[in-house]
């Protein structure tokens, strides 16, 4: 197993390959960030989070608007939640976990299924380390949960929310993973660390059996009840408030041109 640190501008393939941390030029592939080259795979060591469709993200509400909430995603780009997609009335600074349903061409995300998080602790780390914190088929995360007895939700955007149990242990373990992710033997080291700090010694079966009823939504969003939105909503003959095409106030102004005074016909009887 070959493993080496490569720098921007290192040629990694003689054919164009689409992968994270790489760019192609003249039909060849080069790395664009400081990465680890392991068995022909490029793993970036640093970088900001760019929203991708289907990610679970932990966000902080950064603006409350009339029909939407703006969410800070620990990224250069923000996410938006439409009030159509949630019944929660978020306030500025609320922490939530949500799923990215759509990302536009300037990387701005539309979030759905938001769930508010409270009473725990939010930590931030390098987004590129998220796969190491979760581990292969959730192995690292379930180990963290079993030893710290905490509920943990990890967002792809480099944020984790920890509640209950030994929060400090879970937080320091996550930061330790980020610090040492590029050095071989991470799982064994983390096991030793967690055993030392928690005073517990759990077998792999016990860790696998640790299926506590979590207060927080699961990583994959499958365990959660889906909130009704868009097409799932029951049909309503007339929506709340306002004019629009369901109103008995006549057709919307848009039918007669864009805004402005209505010039044709007699004044309406309101």
């Amino acid at each position: 197993m070959s493993k080496e640190i490569v720098l921007p501008g290192t040629r990694v393939a003689d054919n164009p390959v689409r992968c994270e941390g790489c760019f192609t030029e003249d039909g060849k592939t080069f790395t664009s960030v400081v990465s680890i080259l392991q068995d022909g795979k490029v793993i970036p060591l640093k970088g900001k989070y760019i929203p991708r469709v289907g990610d679970a993200v932990v966000g902080i509400v950064s603006d409350v608007r009339f029909t939407s909430f703006e969410v800070d995603l620990n990224s250069p780009y923000v996410g938006n939640i439409s009030t159509k997609d949630t019944r929660t009335e978020f306030e500025l600074g609320d922490v939530l976990v949500a799923k990215t349903r759509m990302v536009d061409e300037v990387h701005e995300a539309t979030l759905v299924e938001p769930v508010q998080l409270s009473g725990g602790r939010l930590i931030e780390f390098e987004p590129v380390k998220v796969p190491r914190i979760i581990g292969r088929s959730n192995s690292m995360l379930s180990m963290l949960k079993a030893y710290s007895k905490s509920d943990i939700v990890v967002g792809k955007n480099g944020r984790a929310y920890i509640k209950n149990g030994d929060v400090a242990l879970a937080a320091s373990a996550i930061l330790k993973i980020c610090h040492e992710a590029h050095v071989a033997g991470l799982t064994d080291r983390m096991k030793v660390f967690l055993e030392q700090k928690s005073g517990l010694s759990l077998s792999p079966e016990e860790i696998a059996a640790f299926e506590e009823k979590s207060e927080l939504p699961g990583q994959d969003f499958e365990t959660r009840e889906r909130l009704p939105f868009r097409e799932d909503r029951p049909f309503r003959e007339r929506p709340f408030g306002g004019g629009g095409r369901f109103s008995d106030r006549g057709p919307p102004r848009g039918d007669q041109g864009f805004g402005g005074p209505r010039r044709r016909g007699p004044p309406r009887d309101y």
């Binding site: 921007p8 501008g9 030029e25 664009s32 960030v33 400081v34 060591l45 970088g47």
Partner: peptide, 11 residues
């Protein structure tokens, strides 16, 4: 720049 993980064509 390289330390910040900003994609570059080279250093």
């Amino acid at each position: 720049m390289a330390d910040a993980g900003i994609p570059m064509r080279g250093i």
